[in-house]
Design a protein around this nucleic acid. Structure first.
Lengths: 337, 337
DNA sequence: CTGTTAGCGCATTCAG
DNA sequence: CTGAATGCGCTAACAG
């Protein structure tokens, strides 16, 4: 593999000059520049990033930590991140934790090893204090999930209000008995959505019924199980709101298994708007997060943080949207005030 | 950030000794080792990989090039790759081409920049000659897609035989009028599957009907369009085989739109066995590729190639499986001889 | 068993 | 505008 010195020799200049034309800064006579460029092309030379990065003490790489690469929800975020990263000549290393709490930290430590310059966390399972300390040391941005009550760079939607919006929508459709299938309570968005659900119920003067609240694990199977549980209640709900689309899809399956119909007997609302929610029948009404945009914003924030560690930590809240399909019947436009 | 020399000073030894205990080779007295370990812990030291890699002229990173990160089919392969990579202390850089032919090459060139030590290609859009040359220069392994008639390391299933197997299955069920929705013909697996389909038709003494053969782009929408086309034929098929699950799902939608039923009126078979194929109704009968295993094998091959560039290039063919669900009716076990 | 030393390939002073 | 020299942090060859 050709090295810089080879280029220098061929062009009859010093390595410093080659470096200058490569970096595009420092004055170089146009004529010399051309000679160097010519030599580079002739040798098919590419600078060794390892060396360059060591010299500059940066790796031009960021790592994105997600809990599950095979979950389509996260891949769309990664796409947004990659878009911005590539625009700025950064590489994206994908960190898959498989929901392993330890690996979350391991990936962050890659910054210490200089494998990466910063981290975007799309999963937050470790205790708050830990992150507060780590965020002090390294450039870290949180996307989708976040830390409550902390001054850290985060990009999310308002999970509380969006869940509340769903309840309003359902009530507006005439529902008074609304079941809820929540996500694992360790996850902050699960807690937020549950809170939003409860607020919605209360604000609509619906009697609070604890039996209507169940907890799944974000998988299809748990949606089936929790919906079944709700269906077996003495007075089953007429609508079910699941904290993500997979569980909502599971709920639809369960309802069909019971010989009931969606939305005629029971309305269903999901959360996240994954592709699968357009395939299921009936197509799922759901909350859509601007995933691509979340990824982009998170990466932009990280870039700023890397180049200016003293940056003010801001929490960016992006707008969500209720996508109305067929799973609540009555397809129509609707806007929460 | 603490450096090796800091550790050395604190432990009262030389950097060489620190390096030795880090690398785990070269004799070090147990007592000295403990001192070093202690110092490392105390300083919370992590070796700078940039420096280590520059010194060893390797990056301990591989790049995986896929056409579309949001396609669940590919993410499962990536999972298999990551598994093996992590076991060997390698990082995985994900390269998303978005089907851009140029980016395919750009990612391979990262090896030249020493950003990566090798490449796994899960997409092959560039001309064969190009890859033959690149494969000479860099450690490259092909997964799922491949180059025909070349001695290169590849991991795939037998796409021809698997498609043929589907036809046999359908014929066995009594179908004689079988429609086909193929993938883009630039993609080798599309050509293989089409070939397998045609071979299956011929070997079963079914009159060859060109109008039954259509071409989509692997998306749901194109499945809808092509199925609609088949349905409008004077003598429409009684079974449709789509070259991937997305198109098969599209076909199911189209058939339902026409007021027909799957599988009663028309049987459907897909290819790939993505999660969505269990959600659609009726659940899709499809060919399952051992994606995880393909990823693992590809990574193992690449590792060998990196450490021994003179390695014999072998094409590994993994077994496929026909997963029988409800989209052809008549759920049953079946084995192609 | 341990220390000294020479680069890995490049960017960047500092002279000229 | 250009070249010589220095060192980023670490590993490995060599010497002791």
């Amino acid at each position: 593999m050709a090295k810089m010195i080879d280029v220098a020799k061929l062009a009859g200049v010093s390595v410093a000059t080659v470096s200058r034309v490569l970096m595009g800064k420092g004055k170089v006579r146009e004529q010399t520049r051309q000679k160097v460029l010519e030599a580079i092309k002739q040798l098919n030379y590419k600078p060794n990033r390892l060396a360059r990065n060591l010299r500059r003490l940066e790796s031009q790489t960021v790592v994105v930590v997600i809990p599950d690469i095979s979950n389509p929800f996260f891949t769309e975020i990664v796409l947004g991140i990659q878009e911005i990263a590539n625009q700025h000549g950064y590489h994206v290393l994908l960190g898959n934790t498989n929901n392993d709490v330890k690996r979350e930290i391991q990936f962050i430590e890659m910054v210490k090893e200089k494998v990466a310059d910063g981290v975007i966390l799309v999963t937050v399972r470790n205790p708050k204090e830990r992150f507060l300390k780590l965020a002090q040391e390294f450039p870290i941005v949180f996307a989708c999930e976040y830390i409550k009550g902390a001054e850290l760079p985060m990009v999310t939607i308002d999970n509380v209000r969006s869940a509340q919006c769903v309840v309003n929508y359902l009530v507006n459709l005439g529902h008074r008995k609304i079941g809820y299938i929540g996500g694992p309570q360790q996850v902050i968005v699960s807690r937020d959505r549950l809170q939003g659900f409860i607020q919605g119920v209360i604000q609509n003067d619906i009697p609070f019924e604890p039996a209507y609240i169940t907890e799944g694990d974000f998988g299809i199977q748990s949606g089936i199980e929790m919906a079944t549980k709700l269906l077996q209640l003495p007075s089953p709900p007429t609508a079910i709101f699941a904290a993500n689309d997979e569980m909502a899809i599971g709920a639809i399956k369960a309802i069909k298994n019971h010989g009931l119909s969606v939305p005629k007997d029971i309305a269903i609302v999901g959360f996240d708007n994954i592709t699968m929610s357009t395939v299921v029948e009936p197509a799922l009404t759901t909350i859509s997060q601007p995933r691509r945009q979340i990824g982009q914003k998170a990466m932009e924030l990280l870039l700023q943080l890397i180049h200016n560690p003293m940056l003010k930590r801001e929490h960016i809240v992006l707008p969500y949207e209720l996508v109305i399909r067929q799973s609540c019947g009555n397809p129509s436009v609707w806007s929460d005030s």
